[in-house]
């Protein structure tokens, strides 16, 4: 019994320490993000490459997912609202659910699966190959050169792709609502505009930026934990991706609490 309690305590302490380490690392990166001297030509080149890998290469898949998911979600929401006699709330559901919750979630999931795992593996491979040692020997700061461009690209990508996802879903909603529910373009736009809240959009963008930060920072952190062994690469990717998923859930829950608190306060 005592051993079991000790074990729980040890695991708890380990989890708390790991979380504190991650937060300390996050603050270190944040501090560097606002240091203009960090952005030299080499860093800018990496940033441009990373934006291309994260935001541009994914576009065909992303656009297809946005159109398909958008059509499905709008179809299901519309059918249920008609069934319940609540079709007047169509606009509110689109803005409140699709734009502020669904779009960021799907975007974050896609980017985490594609780029988060790639960054985790890349950093772990560099660690195993002693390439991080090369940077150290040639006095190239790994935070500035490797981490900062990847994290910035994560933030920019999530914010921009999430906005693009919302626009595509709303645009496909225009087509599908007229096909499925005989809704005119005028009614659709009026319903959306009546439900649009500036504060919701701001909260969505902030949430996207925070998620973008963590879904790249956590894989970097776990990539750095790889040892000299090749076998440590899959282990670091596995742990990194599980923790990214946990972080996404935590940010979603915290953002919901914050939004509901703000709504009550207003």
């Amino acid at each position: 019994m005592t051993t079991a309690i000790e074990q729980i305590g040890r695991s708890g302490l380990h989890a708390v320490r790991a979380s504190l380490d991650t937060l300390a690392f996050a603050f270190k990166i944040l501090a560097r993000m606002f240091d203009v001297r960090a952005y030299n030509s080499a860093v800018r080149m990496v940033l441009i490459n990373q934006i291309y890998f994260t935001s541009v290469q994914i576009l065909p898949l992303f656009l297809a997912v946005a159109v398909i998911f958008g059509a499905i979600v709008i179809g299901i929401i519309g059918q249920y609202l008609i069934h319940l006699g609540l079709f007047d709330y169509f606009g509110q559901l689109l803005m409140g659910f699709v734009v502020t919750e669904f779009a960021p979630f799907i975007t974050v999931l896609l980017i985490a699966l594609r780029s988060g795992s790639a960054v985790n593996a890349e950093i772990a491979v560099m660690k195993v190959n002693k390439e991080l040692n090369t940077l150290h020997v040639f006095r190239i700061d790994e935070i500035n050169y490797l981490f900062l461009p990847r994290i910035l690209s994560g933030i920019l990508s999530i914010v921009l792709l999430s906005s693009l996802f919302s626009i595509i879903v709303l645009a496909s909603g225009l087509i599908f609502s007229s096909l499925l529910f005989d809704m005119s373009m005028n009614d659709y736009v009026t319903a959306l505009l009546a439900s649009a809240k500036f504060s919701d959009l701001i909260v969505m963008l902030i949430k996207c930026a925070i998620m973008g930060f963590f879904i790249v920072m956590i894989p970097i952190r776990y990539g750095m934990r790889a040892t000299d062994e090749l076998t440590s690469i899959p282990v670091s990717v596995l742990h990194g991706m599980v923790n990214v998923f946990i972080a996404i859930m935590i940010i979603e829950v915290v953002s919901l609490i914050v939004v509901s608190s703000i709504s009550k306060f207003i």
Binding site: V125, M126, N129, K130, E131, N133, T134, L135, V137, F138
Partner: peptide
Amino acid sequence: LVSLDAPLISN
């Protein structure tokens, strides 16, 4: 430094 402990960056 020219060493196998400071390899070329692979990417």
